[in-house]
């Protein structure tokens, strides 16, 4: 039961990653690509959490937490760069 739903969830999240990746390639503008990257990292967190449950291992949590933090900083940095033409002032 749980196994089956996990497998279905894997396919959903994989499809989500694929769609976000297509948007990353297609653009058409820079903010679209930033948004696609943002979605990609959140979907990666989802995938890691699912993997953690599938393999019954708590090790994936740390990776998910790090991706959450780094992804946020990356998105903010890229948006700031667009806003100011510079990341730090």
């Amino acid at each position: 039961m749980l196994e089956t739903s996990l497998l279905i969830a894997f396919s959903f999240v994989a499809l989500a990653l694929l769609l976000a990746f297509i948007r990353l390639l297609k653009g058409p503008d820079v903010p679209d690509r930033i948004l696609a990257l943002d979605t990609l990292y959140i979907n990666a967190i989802a995938l890691l959490v699912l993997l953690g449950m599938y393999f019954h291992s708590a090790l994936y949590f740390e990776a998910a937490l790090l991706i959450a933090v780094m992804g946020f900083v990356g998105t903010i940095g890229l948006s700031k760069y667009l806003l100011r033409g510079d990341i730090m002032e």
Partner: peptide, 27 residues
């Protein structure tokens, strides 16, 4: 059952977010 429902609902909404990203017309 509860766990499976949560997982499926979560995965579904994740997919909906990406579908929105893919098919909506402007940024």
């Amino acid at each position: 059952w509860i766990l499976s429902a949560l997982i499926l609902v979560g995965a579904f909404f994740t997919l909906v977010g990406s579908i929105g990203l893919y098919k909506l017309p402007d940024f």
